[in-house]
Design a protein around this nucleic acid. Structure first.
Length: 301
RNA sequence: CGCGGGAUAGAGCAGUCUGGUAGCUCGUUGGGCUCAUAACCCAAAGGUCAUAGGUUCAAAUCCUUUUCCCGCAA
């Protein structure tokens, strides 16, 4: 059971190593700009001709899943809380693949929060699913470094592969019951709340490091943004400059290196941008067609 | 049929209102200058103006069709 791109590699490894009888995922989104969009996991499942079930409310429709008599349920970023009648029904119960070193970053956006908070390491946890939010016993963990060049996209894709590797390592010992689990240390629990609209705006009154981390953690979807001339400009990638500056939000200069904006301590150099109604492009490309002078303008909240 | 923006050279854009030779900035290629260069100078290549139809002597431009892309709202 899973939904986004992150879960596809996990599903892929299951399909290749086990007998996947049913894929459960979130319902298709309807009416999005007149189109029906379905999630990455469903696309994969349809491509592999595996049965797909998309309950609107899993709490009410879980019995449909039990008809398939699963030996084990594996979840990964599914997006709904599972009822205990479902979690504990399979012989090997239910396990979850989570994108952090639990008990740190329980919740829906662990990868984004790790980057935004400036962590230099995160990882994958394979755990028993329990009735609470990511609070089950830990079966296996593996760490991964967060590089300065990582964005949410690049880190999620690496972690997705790592998650699949971890899962394959753990499955045999679950099936022969040799695996040991340990409880999460409740004194170290933190939460990674899902990204809300107000989390996406960039505050240039913070330090350059904080600004850049937010940009990286949200790139490329949904993307961090700042307001310029009352319009929403998305910023997909930026790096910390060497020069000290405290003119929070002001555009200092513009050139081949990028758009240079001041934070509260240093400059931030923007290199990938999305202008209003435009798609993502490099600043170099954007400046080629942009006629107005940007220097001196200020990004505000 | 949720609201709005868009499709013009490899990239980013102007031109559309007011129909009349296809433009700009970059990139690419060739040449020049230089101890040298990502710098500067010169030149060249590269577009069926998204699709289909209509109006017109003449359509990137005006009218209608279809497709695709993007932002917002959900």
């Amino acid at each position: 059971m899973g939904t986004p791109e992150f879960a596809v590699a996990i599903l892929d490894v299951l399909v290749k190593n086990t007998n996947v009888v049913l894929v459960v995922t979130q319902p298709d989104k309807i009416g999005n700009r007149g189109k029906i969009s379905c999630c990455e996991v469903k696309k994969y499942a349809v491509d592999k001709k595996i049965e797909v079930f998309q309950p609107v409310r899993i709490k009410e429709e879980y019995q449909e899943i039990l008809k398939y008599k699963p030996d084990i349920i594996v979840t990964c970023a599914y997006g709904q809380i599972l009822p205990k009648e479902l979690i504990f029904a399979p012989f090997y119960k239910t396990i979850n693949v989570h994108g952090s070193i639990l008990p740190k970053y329980r919740g829906g956006a662990p990868i984004q929060r790790a980057i935004i908070n400036g962590d230099d390491v995160t990882g994958i946890t394979i755990m028993k699913t329990d009735t609470g939010m990511d609070n089950g016993d830990i079966l296996y963990q593996e760490k991964i470094d967060i590089l300065d060049s990582d964005t949410y996209d690049s880190l999620a894709s690496k972690m997705s592969i790592l998650g699949a590797k971890c899962l394959i390592k753990v499955l045999p010992s679950i099936f022969d019951s040799s695996i040991e689990s340990r409880k999460q240390d409740s004194s170290f629990v933190t939460f990674a709340n899902i990204i809300k609209k107000e989390d996406e705006i960039i505050d240039f009154n913070l330090t350059a490091k904080e600004v850049v981390n937010k940009i990286r953690g949200l790139s490329s979807n949904p993307g961090a943004y700042a307001m310029l001339d009352n319009e929403r400009v998305k910023i997909y990638f930026a790096r910390i400059g060497d020069v000290t500056s405290n003119r929070c939000g002001e555009i200092i200069r513009v050139g081949k290196e990028g758009i240079v904006v001041a934070a509260c301590d240093r400059e931030v150099i923007i290199t990938d941008i999305g202008m209003p109604n435009k798609k993502r492009m490099s600043v170099l490309d954007m400046l080629n067609g942009y006629k107005k002078d940007l220097v001196g303008k200020v990004f505000n909240l």
